[in-house]
Amino acid sequence: MKAIIIMDDVFTHRVYPDYLIKELKEDIEFVSKPLTNDELLKNLDILSEVDFIFSGWGGPKFEKDVLDAAPNLKMVFYGAGTIKNIVTNTFWEKGIRITTANAANAIAVSEYTLAAIIFGLKNALTMNQQLNDTKTYPEPGKRNIRGAFKVKIGLISLGAIARELLKLFENFDFEVIAYDPFITQEEADRLGVVLVDLDTLFKESDVVSLHTPLLDSTRGMIRKKHFLSMKGNTTFINTARGAVVNEEEMIEALRERKDISAYLDVVYPEPPKKSSPLYEMKNVFLTPHIAGSEGNEVTRMGDLMVKEFKAYLAGEKLKYEVNKEDYERMA
């Protein structure tokens, strides 16, 4: 069996370090050193005998020319998150399988989200601004801090990240409500969440955390009215996609409701325009799309793909394989 690694060379040895390569070589032969996508496109013939492609950020888009050059390709192991921008109809038509490290990436995003939830419930953003402005500590009892006990957390969409987050919530006394039109009542009961409509979620939650994939049907779905309906001194978190929120309306709402803290790891466009008010707004905590795997965290994704490969060889069901139906709902 033959394989190749194709991805951005900045990440290759971080996602697939030597110890993982050594483990893979116990079962497969690599036809070349790891290649970048540009290197591959200059030498598509190298795919002629390849059975498996290991990839990640900066990997190839599986269009007809690439797939025609790889007649033996059986499976792609994608050591990154969403496959939305790399898979094509031709890929599905050829019956090639793919598994993704989206679940491993979800761990990092869920940890970032939990940190933002705790900071939000501690009113940390406002406390920091007040401290910087006044150079004094606010008096106890006048800090508008809810605290992380017996509060209501609203999750918008219950995909991989939200489900990882629910595992982390087991250490907290949170009531969790959720909006997800694809989830059955039976599934919600199993997850321990109460399903509500979107308007109710915003009105009742102490923290709202957005995890919705960007689809035509979800673009701009979070509107000004949702923010204005939130309770006082509440928190909004977005680690999903910036375009799910109507950003202009969000900015208007956050200007009116300075008691709402917004933790935004994603915006639209990215980065925001230099003239964007988001840079200056005191109730906005802006980070440059870092919630996903960074640093040592990226190796977790490669490790997961090696585990999936071992399961494939053993004829076992792959935990993280994506079929066409799953793909059409992905961000």
Rank of each mutant, 00 (worst) to 15 (best):
T12Q: 04
V15C: 10
L67S: 02
L40P: 01
E39R: 05
V193S: 11
L20M: 04
Y327G: 01
A69T: 04
W92M: 04
G242R: 00
D197R: 05
Y137H: 13
M305S: 06
R257T: 08
K319W: 07
V208G: 01
E308T: 02
A262K: 08
N233D: 12
D45M: 06
S110L: 11
G147Q: 00
E270A: 07
L24I: 15
D199S: 10
N72S: 14
P34L: 03
A101G: 15
V244D: 02
I161P: 13
E26V: 14
P60L: 08
A116S: 15
S110R: 04
S205G: 08
F54Y: 05
S293A: 09
D303F: 14
L40R: 00
D206Y: 08
D216L: 07
K167M: 03
N123G: 02
G147R: 00
A311Y: 06
V15P: 14
P60Q: 05
N233L: 08
W92A: 03
D133E: 11
N144S: 12
A188Y: 02
P34G: 03
I153M: 06
E321I: 02
E321N: 03
L304Y: 01
D303V: 11
K167F: 07
L228D: 04
I118S: 05
V267I: 07
M1V: 11
Y312G: 01
D197F: 09
S110W: 11
T99G: 12
E170V: 10
I290H: 15
N123E: 01
T134C: 09
K317P: 09
G315R: 01
K317Y: 10
N246Q: 09
N246W: 15
L35C: 05
L313I: 05
N105K: 05
Y327D: 01
E249P: 14
E308W: 06
F174A: 05
A103M: 11
S48C: 10
E316C: 06
R329S: 12
L264M: 10
N72Y: 15
S293W: 10
A160R: 15
D45T: 10
I290V: 15
T12A: 14
I107R: 02
Y179V: 03
K42D: 03
